[in-house]
Design a protein around this nucleic acid. Structure first.
Lengths: 351, 351
DNA sequence: AGTATTTATGCTCATTTCGAGCAATATATA
DNA sequence: TATATATTGCTCGAAATGAGCATAAATACT
């Protein structure tokens, strides 16, 4: 290892929009890593398919007065999008979480941001594209009950993992973690807030592709004799969800965790909706984010007693059934009450 | 401005302990900025008193495998403390938020962490010291009702600030912000969760010393003719709270915001308590953090119905009144329920 | 035109949670 | 022994929550 190592501060964006009940995230298909040198680019041909990447760029203190401005700059450049609501998520800096570093490059400290917008046409230097968020985290969408992949793929693999434990104490530790994240006995709904915890379990178990990729890279670096990954497990991971670059899936999980937590006490949903909306539209967006279905009448009651919305007087023409009244967000609540949000149900059954 | 500018990634720690109902934070009295060169140190003599600083050190990728390990390293070195619970708070990277940068040095991107411990003897390279958290944010402690400084100092200054607004719209904007942060009409309790918002208002108004310091530094840098700060305002700020280095008060406010928010849904309090504790001890720690008094019987009911604690069978000998039973945290709840916390009251009266 | 379907909306009811307070008990200290 | 300080047990009404019934207003189909 060298005496000194450069640091690059990277900025990564999770740009989220919800259209037609589908939460979508903006990804860029890159030809190479944004930080790699031309020399490295050649050697990167070993990577057959270049996986989707979140919009990303290095923070340049000479050009960016603040971190957030830097992020907006890169998203603008790569996707043509001018963001509105932006919030910082988390900063990732673990060793070897980035490819160029594995090739002797700088250590990349990535600051991840979450942006909320409406879906719109994208253009820009990268091939930007909206992708279904739950394609990358399919186990998180419980709107139609516990997803099939959980029953058919994840839980069996987790049971196998528990059986493979070395000793008794490791076994019970594994049992506990699985039980907390996915529920072992009761077919309970997944706990909406433990998104990140679930991702980390799946990574450790090897049910996401990047776990194997990172493992291989590390072995290559250490020059240790390669312990080949369980090919069956890799295949399972491949079927479960498509590959994502770097630690981007972890960042996605962090973002989902954050927005699910925030839904209940901050009026973030409205950033994802047009100025005027029907109550069902609002409910669908909340459901898409929370990953669960809600009771319609109670949801509406909550909105009214909380005075979160006000009628515009107009009605929605499209749609099949009885036309719905159009509402708008009552911004005033934010000064009237402290915690303003759409308060998700407790799902008592899950306890 | 130069073509390229170096980046330094800094790690800053808010180390918190609660003893005798007083939340205390670990500060280091430094002789100079940790990143300044010897040459700069000389020129720094203009700063008469070196204000308290949070434990801080540059992240070194050759020595630190992860950001958190880097933080632990620096805290160990500067205060002799071996931390247990540590969580990342936020990353700050605005231009000119750091002194050396103002003197042509690198841009410092600081990653702030929150650590929870018990108070203990400190040693280390810096002169580490425990300081009452609320000394630096005196307007946040509402345990004995709205603090006097809010009535006597802050609200009058805010009213003056509103009056000084340029036009009608700015005036009403200012009124709204003040109303949200400190309440204008009703002498309502302060909204516990808006700690950061309140700090940012006070910074803008000039009621914290660093606002004037930053302003002066920026003027010096721009070479613009100095608009001298309102000396009365500076004096008010000085009386309100002692100086803190860099943007450390903002970091403290962020930490307080985070822990207040987290109290209700994660069992973080127990990190601040000994293994066995009385229910009153527990309540006092929660109150110290939340900054409000709680209803004793309801607090206990909440603990029992939530099965958060279990009796040890032993009792607390010290204390004046009837000896209290000793309890311990029931770790099992964390797998039984999703959101585990001490659920703060809603203070319905404030609405 | 008439019927089925879809969606919106109004209302009830039992259960749980929450805020606030009364009362009794147990110990230390003056 | 009186008093102050704490712990502990219990009640009661208000509000929030979960689940469901019933009705209204539009479209699609026959």
């Amino acid at each position: 290892m060298t005496e000194t190592q450069d640091i690059v501060v990277g900025l990564t964006a999770v740009v989220l929009a919800v259209t037609d009940e589908v939460p979508r995230v903006l990804v860029v298909r890159r030809l190479s890593h944004p930080l790699s040198t031309p020399a490295q680019r050649g050697s990167e041909s070993s990577q057959v398919d270049s996986p989707d990447t979140l919009p990303f760029g290095p923070f340049d203190p000479t050009r960016h007065r603040t971190l957030e401005l830097g992020l907006r700059h890169w998203v603008e450049e790569q996707t043509g999008l001018d963001l509105r609501y932006v919030e910082q998520l988390y900063t990732f800096g673990d060793q070897y979480r980035d490819l160029p570093e594995l090739q002797g490059g700088p250590r990349v400290v990535s600051i991840a941001y979450l942006a909320l917008t409406h879906e719109s046409d994208v253009a820009g230097s990268g091939e930007a594209d909206w992708q279904d968020w739950y394609r990358f985290l399919p186990w998180e969408d419980c709107r139609d009950g516990t997803p099939k992949v959980v029953e058919k793929v994840i839980r069996p693999a987790l049971r196998r993992w528990i059986r493979q434990a070395g000793d008794r104490s490791q076994r019970s530790q594994r049992e506990e973690r699985v039980s907390v994240c996915f529920g072992l006995k009761a077919p309970a709904e997944l706990d909406r807030i433990r998104t990140l915890e679930r991702y980390e379990l799946l990574y450790e178990v090897g049910l996401v592709l990047e776990a194997h990729r990172d493992h291989q890279q590390l072995q290559l670096l250490n020059g240790s004799d390669d312990i080949p990954p369980d090919p069956e497990l890799v295949e399972t991971a491949r079927q479960l969800s498509p590959p994502l670059a770097l630690d981007n899936r972890r960042i996605l999980a962090t973002a989902l965790s954050r927005i699910r937590g925030k839904l209940a006490y901050r009026p973030v949903v409205f950033e994802l909706l047009p100025k005027d909306f029907t109550l069902l539209q609002l409910q669908r967006v909340v459901e898409a984010l929370a990953g669960v279905r809600l009771h319609k009448q109670n949801f509406r009651r909550m909105l009214f007693t909380g005075e979160l919305v006000e009628p515009t007087g107009r009605r929605d023409a499209s749609g099949r059934g009885r036309p719905a009244e159009l509402y708008r967000f009552r911004r005033e609540v934010m000064r009237e009450r402290s915690a303003v949000g759409v308060g998700l149900p407790n799902l008592r059954a899950a306890e």
